[in-house]
Design a protein around this nucleic acid. Sequence first.
DNA 1: ATTGTCGTTGCTATATTAGTATCACATCAT
DNA 2: ATGATGTGATACTAATATAGCAACGACAAT
Lengths: 240, 240
Amino acid sequence: MRPKLNAQPNKSLIDGIATLQALATSPDPVGCRELARRLNIDSVKVNRLLKTLAYLGIARQTADRKYTAGPGMHVLAAQSLFASGLIRNALPVLENLRRFGHTVALGVLWQDNVSYLFHAPPGLEASRGLGRIGLLPATTSGIGIVLLSEYDDADIRELYQGRDIPMFPEGIEQLLAKLAEVRRLGYARVHVADDRDHHIVALSTGDPAHAGVAMSGWIPEAATAPLIEALRAAATEIGG
Amino acid sequence: MRPKLNAQPNKSLIDGIATLQALATSPDPVGCRELARRLNIDSVKVNRLLKTLAYLGIARQTADRKYTAGPGMHVLAAQSLFASGLIRNALPVLENLRRFGHTVALGVLWQDNVSYLFHAPPGLEASRGLGRIGLLPATTSGIGIVLLSEYDDADIRELYQGRDIPMFPEGIEQLLAKLAEVRRLGYARVHVADDRDHHIVALSTGDPAHAGVAMSGWIPEAATAPLIEALRAAATEIGG
DNA sequence: ATTGTCGTTGCTATATTAGTATCACATCAT
DNA sequence: ATGATGTGATACTAATATAGCAACGACAAT
C-alpha cells in the first residue's frame, strides 16, 4: 500500500514539502521560527527551506519579513489540480448529482486522511463548493471508508497500529468488519450519529481507485438504490 | 523583485519541485528517464526524487512502473489553492463580472509567465472556467502586463535581458513604454491584434499586488470606463 | 541471439547540508 | 536608557546525505 522507503530517500525534499504544506495551510503569514516549532524541525533549516521556496516564487515575504504563499504556489496548485483533469472532468458531473437535493462531495484519501476537493450542501452556490474543507480523519468520512476498503486488512492494521480510530471506539476489528461490509456491497453506507440523523452513501472512482464520490443527507434505506445507481454512473464518467 | 539566491539554497528541493511540476503537467504517466530528459537532470537523481514523492503519496506508480500524480498531489493542490482563500474569495466576484458579456479572467504572474486560475468566455459554464489555460508569456496577457507594471524598470530589464519579448518585437524599450502608460492610467488596456479585434482591460489586486483580474472582448474606447470601475470594485473585494 | 530500452540499486567521493555560534534588528518591561 | 527577550539571517566547519558511475534484471523490438 504505502510505498516503501526507497534506497536513497531525499530528506531535504521531504522536509521541504512539509514546509510547503505548513505554509500553505497557515491562514496568516508566519515566521520561520514559528513554522519550525509547528513542524518540529530546526528553525535554521526551515529558514533556508523557506528562502529556497521564496527564490522559486512559491513563498513570498511580507513587509514584516514573515512568509506567506507566493504566486508560484498558485501556479503549482493550478498545475497539479487541473493538469490531471480530475476536477475539470468531475465538476459538471458533480453539479448534475446535486439534483437529488443532498450534499455532494468528491475527495481523495491521503494516508489516513480525506481531503475534499468538492463539498457542497444543497443550496450552496456550486463554485463555492471547491475546497471548502481541509483534511478529515478518513474513518469519519464516507469517502474515506470506501477508499480504505480498497486496501487489504494487513495494510489497514499497519496504518492504524497503536492509534485510536475516530468513530470506531472498539478498535481495529470494528473497522475491518465495516470495510468487509463495504467490499461486499460495493459501496459504503454510513450513519452519521448526530442530531440530524444523516446517512452517507459513497463509492470509489478511478482505476486504480484514488478518489471517492458521495452524497449525504436524510437518506432512508429505500432511497439508497437509485442514489447508488446515480453515483455509479457519475463515478464511471469521472474516473474512466 | 525576484528574491536573491540565499546563503544555502536547498538544491534538492529545487530539483524536487521541478520534478513535481514536470510530473503534474504531464498528461500521461511518464517514466523517470523520460522525465529526466525533459528536465535535463540525471535520470538516477530523478528516479530517487520520484520515489521520494511516491513515498509521500504525491506521486504514484502505475502498473507498468511509470509515474503519475498520486492522491497527495490533489491534497497539496487543494491546500495551496484554497488555504490562501484567493480562489474561494474570487469566484463569486468573478461570476458577477460575467454579466458584462465579456471573457473574465483571474491570473497570477510567476517569473515571466502568467498562470490563469480562472478564464471563462461568455456562455461557458462557470465551473468550467477553472484552470483552463496553463502558462502564457506574461507580455501576451493583459493580466501579465498589469502585474509586470508593479515592478520597476530595472527589474524588468533584468527579467528580459538577452531574450525576445513576445508581442514586443521592438524590444525592451517598447515594453517599458507600455508599462509606464499602465502605471499612469492605473490599469492596462491591451489591443489583441488578431482577426477578432479584441481588447483587454486588466488591473491588479492584492497588497502587495500578486494577482490580476481582466475582462476581454470587443471593448470600444468609450466602454472602458464603466468596465474599469467594475473591475476596481471586484479587485478590492477579492484582494483586500 | 542481439541490441536497445526501461526502472532500479550498491558503491564511494564529494558536494551539500546541519547545527553551532553570532549578528543586527525589533519589541517589551523595567 | 537599559536590559531581556523575541525575530530573521549568515559564516563557519563537521559530517552526512547526495551525485554519478557502473551494473543488474526485465522487457521489447529486431
